[in-house]
Write a protein that binds this DNA or RNA. Structure first.
Length: 516
DNA sequence: AAGTATGCATC
DNA sequence: GTCGGAC
DNA sequence: GTCCGACGATGCATACTT
């Protein structure tokens, strides 16, 4: 297939809001792919590359595009999907001294061979933002339609194998038999089950009735696979993290089971054996060089909360309560997440209070009857975390992109410090279209300096900002940054003189991170 | 040798 | 990771 | 209920610059 045909399908998909039309557009193009092209088309039309990321980002792309700003568009393109993929392969293989220039040359060559429309598409694939209103979720339905299979069967296959290219190939070429042939398999990671949010423990309790409440730990989600002495550890996005987490590997290898797939959280423990802030866990988790030395300073510990496969038996369709019981028998108590099952709101709240008292992130509430819905963010799992609020001052705002083009979107947030303000972070979350429209006018009216992307404003508007946490920062002048900040609303009743001070934010940091 | 820019991963 | 909009 | 796309914070590795 020529790249042009795929680009046309992407444009058509983005041009309609109808999900059905997106699906039929995508299905039509899938049906026209050769077997070798299926993984490419499926990946690109859901915003991915078969190579994963290949070391080309916005900066390098901009450099190449800027160099071609006056170049005329080529009349016709002869690029096939295979041509483009070969170029991606070549770029991905570049490393070492001179690699930036080499990658740039390869990228530039690809752009030179592309029409404007093709350039736009390739660029979006490269930066992982196709923005056509369809990603993997819609693509799954398109695969089902193109293969003439029930969508539920294709989704089921994708649950068991996170590789959509493989699933699509099976469906389109092998039909129902191939799709039905997917099985949960050790060393083939499956999509982790995700949770919806509940505002309070009482809400979670009411929604679920009797529920399993578990401590929610602020670490890194992992899925461990074991067969005999062989162990591999995967992240939430199914990347292989085995090399960086020897303690986890050792712990799993030592389990008295022949084979298993476990779902859990990795925490960093300081020299005193106490859990460290997420930033430090992440530092250790991301370290790949000198892991041995890093391990001496900060050790990693797994805490498991689910078991999906045990000694040859698939457990994902087993109810939560039975999986929990199986987990209790399979791993030592020190590696089990603290949990309690209750239908009492009071008991659940007491558990939550105790968890927070320990300094943990919050709780998960789980439906005892629910299977493990891999890849789903369903109502069977609910997370409850404390919300903190700060009254901060809008210092600036940035122009939005995509559906927020033309609106001032991302707010720069500051706290009072002496006579001035220190910036603590930004947020674009929690704004309705009406809020965006209003603030675009209101902020421009008090602009002090309008740059290409950022409009500075006179400190005037106080906003109520919800956050999940305060963390240390080397980027912001106050040494602190907001984590998971979102707008609750404009405080029309408040003057900037009553906004939060840096001192108050520091006090919140100290309260949330005792001893840090 | 030390600092900066970029990409990519986690949350 | 959170949130709002759209189907 | 589900999916998508607005973009936030951090830290590590790598290549490049000073």
């Amino acid at each position: 297939m020529q790249l042009r045909e795929l680009v046309d399908a992407s444009v058509a998909t983005g041009a309609t809001r109808s999900r059905k039309k997106k699906i039929s557009t995508l299905a039509a193009v899938l049906a026209a792919l050769t077997p070798e092209e299926v993984p490419l088309g499926v990946a690109w039309l859901s915003g991915k590359m078969v190579q994963g990321r290949i070391g080309v980002g916005y900066a390098q792309i901009k450099e190449q595009l800027d160099a071609r700003i006056d170049a005329p568009e080529i009349a016709t393109s002869t690029l096939s999907l295979a041509d483009v993929n070969a170029c991606f392969d070549e770029i991905a293989a570049v490393a070492g001294r001179g690699s930036k220039a080499r990658r740039g040359a390869l990228l530039g060559d690809l752009l030179d061979r592309s029409t404007r429309a093709e350039q736009a598409f390739v660029v979006r694939v490269l930066i992982g933002e196709v923005r056509q209103g369809a990603l993997e979720g819609v693509m799954l339905d398109a695969v089902a339609q193109a293969a003439g299979l029930p969508a539920a069967d294709v989704r089921r296959a994708h649950m068991l194998c996170g590789d959509l290219g493989r699933v699509a190939t099976a469906g389109l070429l092998g039909g129902a038999a191939a799709i039905a042939g997917f099985r949960i398999e050790v060393f083939v990671p499956l999509q982790p089950m995700l949770a919806q949010t509940a505002q309070t423990v009482a809400e979670a309790s009411e929604r679920l009735g009797e529920a399993v409440f578990e401590t929610k730990l602020d670490g890194v989600r992992v899925q461990a696979h074991k067969r005999g002495d062989e162990v591999r550890v995967y992240t939430r996005k199914l990347h292989d993290a085995t090399a960086g987490v020897p303690e986890i590997v050792e712990a799993v290898r030592a389990l008295p089971v022949e084979s298993a797939i476990l779902d859990g959280e990795v925490l960093g423990l300081g020299p005193d054996g106490k859990p460290v802030p997420f930033q430090e866990t992440m530092s250790r988790f991301a370290t790949r060089r000198n892991v041995r030395a890093a391990r001496a300073t900060l050790t990693l510990r797994p805490v498991w909360f689910d078991v999906l496969y045990l000694n040859g038996e698939e457990l994902i369709d087993t109810p939560q309560r039975d999986r929990s019981a199986a987990l209790l028998a399979a791993v030592p108590e020190a590696q089990q997440v603290p949990q309690t099952t209750t239908r009492s709101v009071e008991e659940a709240e007491a558990f939550y209070d105790a968890v927070l008292e320990e300094g943990q992130e919050g709780v998960m509430a789980k439906d005892p009857a629910a299977p493990y819905a891999a890849g789903k963010r369903g109502a069977a799992w609910l997370k409850v975390k404390p919300v903190h609020t700060l009254d901060l001052v809008v210092l600036a705002a940035e122009w939005g992109h995509g559906r927020r083009k033309g609106w001032l979107s991302n707010l720069h947030l500051g706290a009072r410090d002496g006579d001035g303000f220190v910036m603590l972070g930004k947020t674009f979350k929690g704004m309705t279209d009406a809020t965006l429209a209003w603030q675009t006018e209101a902020l421009q009216a008090i602009a002090t300096d309008a740059g290409e992307w950022t409009v500075q404003v006179r400190p005037h508007w106080v906003v109520e900002i919800a956050i999940g946490d305060v963390q240390r920062s080397t980027q912001y002048p106050g040494g602190l940054a907001l984590r998971f900040a979102r707008l609750r609303g404009y405080r029309h009743d408040r003057d900037v003189s009553s906004s939060a001070t840096l001192e108050e934010v520091r006090a919140l940091y100290d309260a949330l991170h005792p001893g840090a």
